[in-house]
């Protein structure tokens, strides 16, 4: 077949590991970006720990390392979970935050206070509360999976609508319940929900840090399969990847990561959206091993760097989550307007 052999000779520039010069350049760029992000992250962490320390260094360091620890956990958990969630949802505007995972968290806390009183919430240890949250979020995640991802022809428009509707439904339920609370209960709820990162509970940090580390470890073997999930259900079946199983496993890990992040700083609805999309834009690759690392690092940069800027440079008392949600909300609207395909 002459048509075929004409170009067989062009293969000579391909090296033994199958990479053309253009690919090698691309791989180098990916690596350079990852290293650059990691170094920026280290820089942000160092700046956060050491900038303008007055008085006792040991006191400042122990306080700040707990703060920065919690910001790191949040950034990484949200960055990694949002990126893989986009893949299993098959859309770049769908992240756990957008789909109402954070709203579920708020609802759970509010319900506990509403039904059993604030004292119960405080009685529950840090561990128990985290376990309860994770459990409830997983149930929500699996229900979502059942109803929305089960059918082969996922109608993304419906998924988005359902997510937004569920999110506002939970938000209204939470508001309704919180209206019925006594002022004391309400205050307790507020402190739990918008857990100030300035006084990070070391036990909570330990638990959520461990949960995040475990989540990332569990996610790693899924990442190559997630590359195939980009080809859709049929592509997965054709290549021997169990589509439903991969999506379900990933979703469970996502809920664990989201639970860790919300337990530390409360809802961060739009952070994941910004971070995951930036990672996809920055990296010229479809490989999830690189994309997830980039997204986690960008997440870290946003939380640590953002908080550093907010407290030290702009000297504001506003928590970083408020700023990020404002910026992220705007970005979400821009994305919605610009996407012709949901």
């Amino acid at each position: 077949m002459t048509a075929v052999q004409d170009h067989a000779t062009t293969g000579h520039t391909i090296s033994a590991n199958g990479a053309s010069p253009a690919e090698k350049a691309k791989d180098r760029r990916v690596l350079a970006i990852l290293i650059g992000l990691a170094m920026l992250g280290l820089l942000a962490i160092t700046a956060y720990l050491t900038y303008g320390v007055q008085g006792s260094w040991s006191y400042a360091l122990s306080l700040r390392s707990r703060q920065v620890g919690s910001l790191i956990v949040v950034g990484i958990a949200i960055g990694a979970s949002s990126l893989v969630f986009q893949t299993i949802a098959g859309s770049r505007i769908l992240t756990p935050g957008v789909m109402g995972f954070d709203a579920v968290y708020v609802l759970i806390q509010t319900m506990i206070v509403g039904l059993f009183g604030a004292s119960t919430l405080q009685l529950l240890g840090v561990m128990e509360r985290f376990a309860l949250n994770t459990f409830a979020l997983m149930i929500f995640g699996l229900l979502l999976f059942r109803f929305l991802f089960r059918s082969n022809s996922r109608n993304l428009f419906v998924v988005v609508l359902v997510g937004i509707v569920l999110g506002s439904l939970f938000a209204s339920l939470s508001t309704l319940t919180s209206r019925l609370l006594s002022p004391d209960d309400f205050l307790t709820l507020q402190t739990v929900l918008f857990a100030s990162f300035t006084t990070v509970d070391p036990v909570l940090l330990g638990v959520t840090g461990a949960a995040t580390a475990f989540g990332l470890l569990a996610l790693w073997p899924q990442l190559r399969k997630l590359d195939v999930v980009d080809l859709g259900h049929d592509g997965c079946v054709a290549l021997g990847v169990d589509y439903h199983r991969t999506v379900r496993t990933t979703l469970v890990i996502v809920t664990l990561l989201v639970a860790a992040s919300t337990a530390l700083v409360g809802p961060m609805i739009f952070l994941g959206l910004i971070v995951a999309n930036l990672a996809r834009q920055a990296l010229p690759t479809h490989r999830h091993t690189s994309l997830v690392v980039a997204s986690a690092l960008i997440g870290l940069l946003f939380t640590v760097g953002g908080q550093f800027l907010v407290t030290h440079v702009f000297d504001l008392q506003t928590p970083i989550s408020v700023v990020i949600n404002l910026v992220g909300g705007l970005y979400f609207i821009v994305l919605l307007l610009r996407t012709d395909r949901l």
Partner: peptide
């Protein structure tokens, strides 16, 4: 098993959802 069959049978349908 999906993985077992994928080594034995390859299939091409229209993949309309190509990234």
């Amino acid at each position: 098993k999906p993985a077992q069959l994928a080594k034995k049978l390859g299939v091409l349908k229209q993949l309309n959802q190509l990234s």
